[in-house]
Nucleic acid binder design. Structure first.
Lengths: 192, 192
DNA sequence: GTCTATATCCGGATAGAC
DNA sequence: GTCTATCCGGATATAGAC
């Protein structure tokens, strides 16, 4: 079963894992096939076999984020809004704990002007999906009487997304930053 | 007076201006001396005369941001808190209107792991100063009875800073983003 | 202060052997 | 599927003429 004929090659997956780590720490422009291949213990031509162009690797990474986001959303569709918020916070926290990574959307936004077109399209789609989920969370929380905040669900969802993205980045300079942002978001939602 | 012997050369200033534009649109890793020199209409060796190493240019840029921030703060020290908030928003807006730039702290955070040490030190200091100012704004606003929010001034100041930084980045993908963030921050502060 | 010319290195990418 | 070998372009940086 684990060696099904259509299974993605292990090497391909390991390349994606290493590239993801590099993307979220260094950024797309600042990582090279050399860094991936040396980490993997192969030559850089081997990477080109799996991903002919760097753009292919970048697009594959964002596509994987999008699939992962869909599974993340489905996996906790039955949780109450405050539970979902906790999971959202844990996701951000797990990025930070792993070498002070930033979230994918944050890295892709700041590098946006230098990304190849295909990556920009994927990034915009990914960010749109994150945005929608954040807004729906704010909406369900209010409808369920769990969250209490001024303004529309769209405004509050967009603000939470923005604050977490910025907070995760600023945590690189001050370890307490992300905790502060999470605490204040909960307060502004009237939770706890 | 304008040609005082100790005046910084015009070329040096123009290099900084062009480099700043490139830093806030493309990032430090994604801009080159070639891009600066061609924009300036000189050869790249001329840039090296003014800034021998790229690190020197990067450090000079952040030092200028720090001086500018100090002047920005002083210039509106007498404004009421809600007026200062407006100026803060206008600053973010002006970045966005200029080729969808992000704020310096946002770019420096995401590239943090790849920056030379001297730039990291400057970036950390700059961000610390931004953080303090944002917190003091939240504090004065509450003390003056203009802002009304839950949590401490530190928590609210850090949240505003984070949300504006993230919002400015995400505005690259969706033009309405920054306006939404500004509107919601004002609402959360109980302003207007 | 700016130029030409060049050194050095590194990045993405390809060809062809195994 | 991975290797060796190589090409090409671009980036930082320096030397020395003007």
């Amino acid at each position: 079963m684990k060696t099904a004929p259509d299974a993605k090659s292990d090497t391909r997956k390991r390349i994606l894992d290493i590239a993801e780590e590099l993307l979220l720490t260094r950024g797309f422009n600042a990582f090279s096939y050399q860094l991936v291949s040396s980490e993997l213990g192969v030559r850089n031509a081997a990477i080109h076999y799996h991903f002919p162009h760097k753009t292919d690797l970048g697009v594959a990474l964002i596509e994987r984020y999008r699939r992962r986001l869909r599974r993340f959303i489905e996996a906790q569709a039955t949780l109450p809004p405050d539970g979902q918020l906790e999971r959202y916070f844990e996701l951000a926290q797990s990025y930070f704990l792993q070498d002070k990574q930033v979230c994918p959307s944050g890295m892709l936004c700041t590098e946006f002007h230098t990304l190849p077109d295909a990556m920009r399209d994927q990034a915009a789609a990914f960010i749109g999906e994150m945005r929608n989920w954040s807004i729906e969370l704010a909406e369900r929380g209010r409808d369920g009487g769990i969250f209490h905040y001024p303004g529309t669900a769209e405004e509050m969802g967009v603000l939470m997304f923005s604050a977490l993205q910025g907070g995760l980045q600023l945590a690189r300079v001050d370890d307490t930053w992300l905790d502060t942002v999470k605490r204040q978001i909960k307060r502004l939602l009237g939770v706890e």
